[in-house]
């Protein structure tokens, strides 16, 4: 069996495993069954292993770190999301969070499977400007950072739902099983606290790379600018949190806004804005 076929299998396994996990996590929201949700955790682990294999195979096939085209970015992104989610599940033991995080990973893979044109999925040679170790650091930190922001997105959405139920004095079993508002707020913050330093490294390593490649550490290319905008939004979140005590729903909304900006940096810039940085997709 050649490597490309193997890579296709790895993609299929990742896709099916994340989908199964996402569906079971969602069912678990309304139907408490611990044995069932263990299958979801297992699915996430299997998917994560297959996702890792997928990245490894792509690395072998293209003989460079798999961080270059849109396909490689996205499967790295899903790797970051699933990895961070497993870490959070192991640390906090709230499996309901999975229903708000794993669908994001699965939807990104569904985008590859359904919408992305096949020629954009192939392994490509590196153009000279991309042949840099800084690129590897740049994208590797980006995927973990974005994974952490995705997790914070999930717990922020949960916070808003839970708060809504509390305000309506909901006595539903669903409300009771949800982690408390304090915990959700705390987890959202903790993962932004992981993502933010990494996002800083993403931006700085990108600037170092640009300095080596073109002699311009910053050129206001839309992708650069959008990563800065994302950074500014999370920086504002952190300052508001510590100074004005912006917790709870306002913090949750800012975390959601931040992730929208992450996604826009990822997709929007490639499809809606033009620029020299268009390696990510188009």
């Amino acid at each position: 069996m050649d490597l490309v076929t193997l890579e296709n299998y790895a993609f299929t396994v990742t896709f099916v495993a994340y989908m199964t996990a996402a569906v079971i996590y969602i069912v678990y929201l309304g139907y408490k069954n611990e044995n069932m949700v263990r299958v979801a955790t297992l699915g996430t682990i299997v998917g994560f292993i297959a996702n890792t294999a997928l990245l490894g195979l792509r690395w072998k096939i293209s003989s460079h770190a798999p961080f270059v085209n849109g396909f490689e970015f996205l499967v790295s992104f899903t790797w970051g999301i699933a990895g961070i989610y497993l870490l959070a599940e192991w640390r906090y033991k709230f499996r309901m969070i999975g229903a708000f995080v794993m669908p994001v990973a699965w939807l990104l893979l569904a985008y590859i499977a359904v919408i992305m044109p096949p020629q954009m999925k192939n392994a490509e040679n590196l153009m000279p400007a991309l042949q840099s170790n800084w690129l590897t650091i740049h994208v590797a930190t980006a995927m973990v950072s974005y994974g952490a922001f995705a997790l914070s997105l999930g717990t922020s959405i949960m916070f808003l739902i839970k708060q809504n139920m509390e305000n309506n004095k909901s006595k539903s079993d669903f409300n009771k099983r949800m982690p408390t508002l304090d915990i959700l707020d705390d987890i959202s913050y903790k993962f932004i606290a992981v993502g933010f330093p990494l996002l800083s490294i993403v931006i700085v390593s990108g600037a170092i790379w640009a300095e080596y490649a073109w002699g311009r550490y910053w050129s206001w290319d839309p992708k650069e600018t959008w990563s800065l905008i994302t950074w500014l939004v999370y920086a504002a979140y952190l300052h508001a949190r510590f100074t004005f005590g912006w917790r709870g729903s306002r913090a949750a909304w800012m975390s959601i806004l931040g992730f929208i900006f992450v996604l826009f940096t990822f997709f929007g810039v490639n499809y809606l804005l033009s620029g020299i940085h268009a390696y990510g997709g188009s």
Partner: peptide
């Protein structure tokens, strides 16, 4: 200031002036 910088930066990525000499977009 952080938020205003973010908003103004967004405007700068959407409204990109064209360099009259080269006809290319001048992002900076």
């Amino acid at each position: 200031l952080l938020l205003v910088l973010a908003i103004v930066s967004i405007i700068g990525t959407v409204w990109v002036p064209t360099d009259p000499l080269t006809g290319q977009q001048d992002f900076a």
